[in-house]
């Protein structure tokens, strides 16, 4: 497969995962904030902002409509739904002949749906229906991807993009709540629920631990649960498996580096207990995961996309 194609597929998957993350975050928090006091709402707004990597500058205090507007419509905000969907579609367009017609048609439909939604619609009512529809569309796209595309190298690059993005997203979510979860600050029950909902993990958590919410159990679930698709451990395992499925380019020495990085990250999480991770400081443990993901991203780029010519000339 052409390196450029791999790169486009990787980013297409990352941007869609990011769009989904923004959508879920808004969805989980909009209803919550209806029931909160003004200062709690402020705190929550700034958490959402930080969870998305602080994608825009806040001048003065932030309001709910302003945040909604920025994260839905603003094409200059890099994690807004419109930016992510447009970027995903543009990447898909570059490799139109590599993805199935069904995938293209879902993604194209999502793009037109998002473009049609207007600021006036948002003034009329909460954007909940809109958010649900975006999520449904993304799920359809993922379903078509699995059902209509060969699970070859192209597909694996989509998996890599999706899971590296997800690992970073869940880590960032947890990091933003690190002080509260480590007992250094107070957190309301509702805010814990919003955290779980933002990671698609509310019902799964209940099944695992019942409706007893403790900071430690929530950290354990989102960080180390081996079965939940949004937990960090699950995501990095998927990432490592997908990397292992790529063609062998070990002659260049780069693959072994990528595999080593992925293996180390999986091992760190697989053989750690939540107590150990938290004893060294939850915040720094999460920072560490995020940093390792960034190294993996750079490693993948060097091994498959932008490698030096000399290292890879055929013998």
């Amino acid at each position: 497969m052409l390196s450029r194609v791999a790169d486009s597929l990787y980013w297409m998957a990352r941007y869609l995962e990011r769009a989904e993350q923004t959508t879920r975050l808004l969805d989980a928090n909009i209803q919550l904030m209806l029931e909160q006091k003004p200062d709690a709402v402020q705190r929550q707004l700034s958490r959402i902002h930080l969870s998305l990597g602080a994608p825009f500058r806040i001048e003065g205090s932030l309001s709910v409509p302003a945040l909604e507007h920025a994260l839905i419509f603003d094409a200059k905000v890099h994690s807004s739904i419109i930016s992510c969907v447009m970027a995903a579609r543009e990447n898909a367009r570059q490799v139109r002949e590599q993805i199935s017609s069904e995938m293209w048609s879902e993604l194209n439909g999502l793009y037109h749906f998002v473009k049609r939604y207007e600021a006036e619609d948002l003034e009329q009512q909460l954007p909940l229906e809109f958010l649900t529809e975006v999520r449904r569309n993304i799920s359809l796209f993922k379903g078509e991807t699995d059902a209509t595309m060969s699970h070859g190298e192209e597909w694996w690059f989509l998996q890599i993009g999706r899971h590296i993005e997800r690992a970073v997203n869940t880590s960032t979510m947890l990091k933003v709540h690190a002080a509260e979860l480590s007992g250094e600050a107070d957190i309301e029950h509702l805010e814990l629920l919003a955290l779980l909902r933002s990671c698609n993990a509310f019902e799964a958590y209940l099944k695992r631990y019942t409706a007893e919410f403790s900071a430690e159990l929530i950290v354990e679930f989102l960080l180390l649960n081996p079965q939940h698709p949004h937990s960090i451990l699950f995501s990095v395992r998927r990432l490592a498996d997908s990397l292992a499925a790529l063609p062998d380019v070990s002659s260049r020495g780069q693959r072994s580096r990528v595999e080593r990085l992925a293996g180390r990250l999986v091992a760190t999480l697989s053989y750690s207990s939540v107590e150990e991770l938290m004893s060294g400081g939850l915040h720094s443990a999460l920072e560490n995961v995020i940093r390792q993901c960034a190294q993996l991203h750079a490693g993948i780029h060097q091994a498959y996309i932008d490698y030096p010519i000399e290292a890879s000339l055929p013998a």
Binding site: S3, R4, P247, V249, I309, P314
Partner: peptide, 22 residues
């Protein structure tokens, strides 16, 4: 289907950049 940026010339030989090497 390649674009110009997918191709590299080295020692007067043309290569395309793929995920499994040139």
């Amino acid at each position: 289907l390649v674009e110009g940026r997918d191709l590299i010339v080295h020692d007067n030989i043309v290569y395309m950049r793929t995920t499994s090497g040139l």
